[in-house]
């Protein structure tokens, strides 16, 4: 049922999301707006319809971050994304994708808030079916390997559907807490 659910895949994608975002955030293009006209909350650069690819050393796989728009704010060094989408391709491993309507990233990527139709999919593979996690808000804390939400969350696998309100995943301890109203349906024949 839930016992064989391994949430580690979520953290792979959390770390990637943070690293690619930080990458994008560091050496942003020349500001579109003249410095003098910057008001307090004005962005210093905007990137549209972008994709950032990170290949690993031996070019065996890659991670791609796509987005409709990214806006960076110099006042607090934060960034906001529209339609972020992350895809990971690694040989021998099921591909994992993450998408959301919006993402907000604090300076240095310490806190990332994914909001609106947050969907994380791990494709079938290695003897396991597809795993899909959906929620409306996911707060990622990459440095602590924690992902949490206080919203309804649903996790579906080949044989099981798990629903709860509130979840906290800690990749260091390997613990996932479902915080309230936990409902599981497990059907071997599905």
């Amino acid at each position: 049922m839930m016992g064989h659910l391994r949430f580690g895949f979520l953290f792979v994608i959390v770390a990637l999301f943070a690293s690619l975002l930080t990458l994008l955030n560091q050496d942003g293009p020349t500001p579109l707006l003249a410095p003098e006209s910057i008001s307090v909350r004005a962005p210093d650069y905007v990137v549209e319809d972008f994709s950032a690819i990170r290949t690993d050393e031996n070019d065996a796989g890659y991670k791609m971050l796509l987005g409709k728009k990214m806006v960076h704010y110099p006042d607090d060094d934060s960034a906001e994304l529209e339609q972020p989408r992350l895809i990971t391709i690694e040989p021998g491993k099921p591909s994992v994708q993450l998408q959301a309507d919006n993402a907000k990233m604090s300076a240095e990527g310490e806190d990332i808030y994914l909001s609106g139709n947050v969907v994380i999919v791990r494709n079938a593979g290695k003897g396991r079916g597809e795993t899909i996690l959906t929620t409306s808000l996911l707060h990622l804390i990459p440095d602590q390997d924690i992902a949490r939400t206080d919203k309804p969350v649903e996790i579906t696998e080949t044989n099981a559907t798990i629903r709860a309100i509130g979840m906290e995943m800690n990749n260091r301890t390997g613990h996932t807490e479902l915080l309230s109203q936990v409902k599981v349906v497990h059907d071997k024949k599905r």
Binding site: M1, M2, A164, H175, T176, E177, L178, L179, S180, Q181, V182, K183, V184, V185, H186, D187, K188, K189, R190
Partner: peptide
């Protein structure tokens, strides 16, 4: 099918 409900889970 097995249905399971609880206040919380780990």
């Amino acid at each position: 099918p097995v249905h399971l409900e609880a206040d919380r889970a780990t």
